[in-house]
Write a protein that binds this DNA or RNA. Structure first.
Length: 481
RNA sequence: GGCCCCGUCGCCAAGUGGUAAGGCAGAGGUCUGCAAAACCUUUAUCACCAGUUCGAAUCUGGUCGGGGCCUCCA
């Protein structure tokens, strides 16, 4: 089966056929760099990170462009509040963004252009639109004439007349139509500015994406992505600009990820339920965050809550525990020439799920089944003497790791990961490692003397404080309950 | 008001015409001095009503409930 994607433009899943067979051009709207990224940014970027990885895994030579919008009203305002240069502010948050994305384990896009590096192209597109009568200059600003573009609002499926009725005009703007939007804004004193045919000014919001995408991917390309909230006005306006200027179809497939809610409420600054990526990573492992995001479909809304994150951690632990057990089970067993179909079967299911509009939730469900199969094999009596079973476990283990890589998970050493999560959890309990070790030693003594009453007392005592003891032939270890 | 989305087992969550994936939690069992992990077994007819169809969670209409966009936002 081949890849199918849900296209916001048609409202349907469509067969994915890139403009050039075997190659994909993908542009995803990045961030406006004036503040730290929140969990919503994390989701959007992780979703498209997985799409990028999967396209490559599926054999497409993929060019992925994700921009930084580093000139904008919000940046200027924030810089003024802090009394620093807006360029300095942008640099600071570009660095912060890079750190956050690296912490979340994202791969680097092919290109990460900045709006300010494309001023020339922005001016060129604006000029072209003016020449074609689709834009006009007004007191040093340049506006797009929305009623000159037939397809306006075709992506968001709105009605221009109705929107005009409700539209507001910002004081100082001289627009022909309240729905017209700025391509270029005349600079006010103290604002960053560039020379243009219309005087000193700076780009409006939207135009930078048209400039960067056409420069790096051409006038027409395959995939354009972003959060749902960008459909209107941002993406609608990009279409108007790009198609208005080039006269060619802009984007073949529009992909939009769903929102993140926090404890069932929309995340917003006014509600005060805003979580930055760096805050979350103080409590949760980055892989847990990624795993949580991938256990829902990218278009569905997800609810960010402690309970959901804790469940994600439990799910991911199941993988790492199985991988660790498999490692230990096959360690030192000689390679035999037994063959295995298990890995290929799993990969087939994984591909089928991902081919259906990147259904990561279903793909992960298949991986869980792989884990169960692997655990069952390892638990077989005299497992190490059965070459075919050993081969199957090795095959499954390698396949799970390989497919996990497509999702950006399971890349840690299982023992280290489990230990790290355990110690992080211990820090939240009122008990020290030393105290636990001491009680384990006492219990060992009691068990040696067959004093099982005392032994169980210690077990219960620790259990009451959140610690579970695990007895094995190699000794007693512990974990968090 | 306009446009759009959602309502699946206690919780999370797949599934867009052929008799409901997966995870967590629960129950029983195997294993264990006890326990844990693991494994096995087990738990839903899909908000409601009416239609279309040989057949619907999946299509149509309606009802109820929840949410989003329409202003900056991933």
């Amino acid at each position: 089966m081949s890849l199918r994607v849900y296209n916001t433009m048609s409202g349907k899943k469509e067969e994915f056929q890139p403009l050039v067979p075997g190659k994909v051009g993908m542009y995803v709207c990045g961030v406006t760099v004036y503040d730290y990224c929140h969990i919503g940014h994390a989701r959007a970027n992780i979703v498209f990170d997985i799409i990028f990885r999967y396209l490559q895994f599926a054999g497409y030579e993929t060019t992925y462009v994700r921009n930084y919008t580093d000139v904008d009203d919000k940046i200027i305002n924030r810089a003024n509040e802090r009394g620093i240069d807006s360029k300095e502010l942008a640099e600071e948050f570009i660095r912060a963004f890079d750190e956050d994305m690296a912490a979340l384990g994202l791969v680097k896009p092919t290109h990460e252009p900045r709006a300010t590096e494309y001023i020339e192209q922005i001016i060129a597109i604006s000029q072209k639109l003016i020449d074609k009568g689709m834009a006009y200059e007004s007191a040093g600003d340049v506006y797009y004439r929305v009623d000159k573009f037939d397809g306006y609002l075709k992506l968001s499926k709105r009605n221009l007349e109705e929107m005009q009725a409700g539209a507001r005009i910002t004081p100082g703007e001289q627009k022909e139509n309240p729905m017209d939007f700025a391509l270029w804004k005349a600079a006010k004193p103290g604002e960053p500015n560039w020379k243009s045919p219309w005087g000193a000014g700076r780009p409006g919001w939207h135009i930078e994406c048209s400039a960067m995408s056409s420069s790096l991917l051409g006038d027409s390309f395959d995939i354009h992505g972003g959060g749902r909230d960008l459909i209107f006005p941002h993406h609608e306006n990009e279409i108007a600009q790009s198609e208005g200027a080039s006269g060619k179809p802009f984007v073949k497939y529009w992909l939009h990820n769903g929102f993140v809610n926090v404890n069932q409420e929309k995340m917003s600054k006014s509600l005060g339920n805003f979580f930055t990526i760096r805050d979350i990573l103080k409590t949760y492992d980055p892989e847990v965050v990624r795993f949580f995001i991938l256990t829902s479909h990218y278009r569905s809304p997800i609810d960010f809550s402690d309970q959901n994150l804790i469940e994600a951690q439990a799910g991911l632990s199941r993988f790492y525990e199985a991988l660790l057990a498999a490692d230990q089970a096959v360690e030192g067993v000689a390679e035999a020439d037994a063959s295995s179909e298990e890995g290929a079967k799993l990969e087939e299911k994984f591909r089928e799920a991902m081919d259906d509009d990147f259904n990561t939730a279903l793909a992960i469900a298949h991986l869980f089944e792989g884990v169960r199969t692997m655990n069952r094999l390892v638990a077989t009596k005299k497992f190490r003497k059965k070459a075919d079973l050993v081969a199957q476990v090795r095959d499954l283990r390698v396949t799970i790791l390989k497919l996990g890589e497509v999702l950006g998970i399971y890349h840690s050493d299982p023992a280290s990961w489990l230990e790290k999560v355990k110690l992080a959890g211990l820090a939240r309990l009122d008990i020290s490692r030393e105290e636990i070790e001491e009680l384990i030693a006492q219990r060992k003594q009691a068990r040696a003397e067959k004093d099982f009453t005392r032994s169980d007392e210690i077990r219960d005592l620790l259990a009451a404080r959140g610690i579970e003891l695990l007895d094995s032939p190699a000794g007693t270890t512990w974990k968090l309950k």
